[in-house]
Design a protein around this nucleic acid. Structure first.
Lengths: 209, 209, 209, 209
DNA sequence: TGATAACCGAGACGGTACGTCACGTCTTTAA
DNA sequence: TTAAAGACGTGACGTACCGTCTCGGTTATCA
């Protein structure tokens, strides 16, 4: 006794949490979310589906929010790096494409719905925002490159471009229930490209003399 | 059976539905919606708040959806007529402004959240879409006028302009929890104006020779 | 309108309570009590057994105590009138017999256990006391009659006689798990009769000269 | 595994059981029992109060019953020897007094309640019976002495006297929530003394010639 | 004017889910 | 081996809403 350096601040005592439980619950949560939406989501059913006890769910995730957020956190789509295609239009398209893809998937839709449905202050919305920010960050690099090439309109806020993009896609996916397919997305990117570009842009498919 | 003409085909017998009940319930619904959001909404509480019996609520609106839709139907903002300002940019701004205003109000937010949260097939989303369509319809007139003046870019789909506008505003209001204020909205309209316009647009504040 | 005397203080509004529910629940409660004892009693199980919803149970009986008390209230054994047999000893026996019988039955045992187990201030104990008092009241009549015949010992408190009687029976039934059968009860009554009587008492079966 | 003397034939290896754990747990159990009664008793709370782990409780006492029984076993009141006062009445009083005293104390009450509440077949009831039997055993000596003095009524079963005594006290303490005070106890002993005695007994305060 | 039919308030009812608590078993690390 | 720590399945707790139902009492309209 005395200045015992090995103070028993045992932080790793006790039976460790079974990894399988976490996985099963989160998977079940994602499945339920995709099927029934956020407010059709019941902890009881999630637990039943994961073949895990309700208390085991509550032990880790004290609120439904936290559970959904955790489930969504596992969705980390790898859409981080958008390549330098050499021109603004294709850079924007490369940025938009994985976002559209993500929001087309049931889980992506569910996350978006949940984020919007629960309000801006919710944990879920925060998560979604974080995701979006991660994804949106390349837009600054794109803008910088474009500006270097004289392609960027000075008055354009890069964030506004990306948010318009995302907003339009969300509108299409969540309210119109339509897919953000290739042609549609092309057209949208063209629209915003013209808005962001310094000079008039030739129509993409018609050859200019 | 029988061709008795005096058969009591009385369709309008009985005590008529009190109008006050409708008003009270819808008002209570709107209030609860603004306070607690869509899934914090309980018929029991609405009825209690309206000082009306639960049965009287269910008699008219069989589902929670229908109730919310009816409540929202009373929101008819008068944003139908956008004037002809003589140029595309201001036409677009005149179109965007009331939308932004509507989505800033608590009830507007609530409607948007509800529409998105309940899924694209829901009655509420249908209502929201209808509202949006009503509001968006002038965009075709705007496009036609602009085309007449040689201001409209041929490849631009008017719908896509309006949906980008709405989507960007929704993103700002519902996810970023920020107001779509004058400067921000100006900037957004500029962006989309440039996208929709046939020719390069001079920066709004710098005079070009 | 005006001074309407028939003020709508409708006490009988609403759907009337189904009598069958009450009966089923109380029966189930008694059965569970007899099987599992007081703290083996679960509202969940009672409801399941009665094929009634849990909420329907809670609607009427807010606590487990109240439920048990109500169930026990249905036990009103008809042991109110003890006849005048003409002598003290038989009067006492006539008083003791139905008590012993009641405490031998499973429900009687359960009530006694519950009353004692939950503490003297509980609703159940109050009920048990009431029952006991109802039953014990004839002891005063018995004492009065006996005093008239010169059979009652002046210093004896009638209540103490009845409480000794009940206490002894409870001890036998609840702690020794033995039946208060005829011979044993005879003997107990004899003991207390001698204690309560003014003069020495001859043994019941041996003839005195 | 040869006969290596230094082979750890460790029969006493491992961490020794801390004696303090037992004491702490039993003390906590008694405290909780007195506070919350038998079914307000939770192993979790006991462990927390004793600042001991739940596991350590279960290691020693596999059931709640066993725990309570063990806790009660520490109550050994020293009421074993009742002196020979030379007459039956005072012998009985000397026997009754410590019993009444024990049942007045909170722990005594708790034990009695627990014994009755858990049913006759429970470990606790067995313990209580054992206690009672230990305490009651002198009644045979008392009866024998009284019979020697011609004071004992032949038909009286000594056990029945003691059980009536105990039963009456329990009734008073557990159901009436009253103390078995001196005067009341005197009166009870008188009643049973008269019942047990061979000859009529003079009132204790009036002198007979 | 009176029957008829709908409205309305009140509340019972069977469900489902909520989030919490205690149980007793188990698995792990530290002493 | 014991102890502390805590995960885990089980099951009950008491509450809140859901949507349906059965009542009694109230208005209207129509015969």
């Amino acid at each position: 006794m005395g200045d015992d350096p090995s103070t028993p601040n045992r932080r790793d005592a006790g039976r460790p949490r079974g990894a399988s439980v976490v996985a099963a619950v989160l998977a079940a949560t994602r499945a339920e979310l995709a099927e029934s939406g956020l407010d059709g989501l019941s902890v009881d059913r999630v637990a039943r589906r994961a073949e895990v006890n309700k208390t085991s769910v509550y032990r880790r995730w004290p609120t439904k929010e936290a559970l959904v957020a955790a489930a969504m956190d596992g969705l980390r789509t790898e859409f981080a790096d958008s390549p330098d295609t050499g021109n603004l239009r294709d850079d924007l398209h490369a940025l938009a494409e994985p976002i559209a893809e993500f929001l087309s998937r049931p889980e992506g839709k569910a996350l978006a719905r949940a984020a919007i449905g629960t309000g801006a202050t919710s944990e879920i919305a925060a998560l979604a925002s974080r995701r979006m920010t991660e994804q949106a960050s390349p837009v600054f690099a794109i803008a910088t490159r474009a500006r270097g090439r004289g392609e960027w309109h000075d008055d354009t806020d890069p964030q506004q471009v990306i948010f318009s993009l995302v907003g339009a896609i969300m509108h299409r996916v969540l309210l119109e229930d339509a897919d953000p397919t290739g042609r549609w997305l092309d057209s949208l990117v063209d629209l915003l490209h013209r808005g962001a570009a310094a000079t008039p842009v030739a129509p993409p498919d018609r050859t200019t003399p």
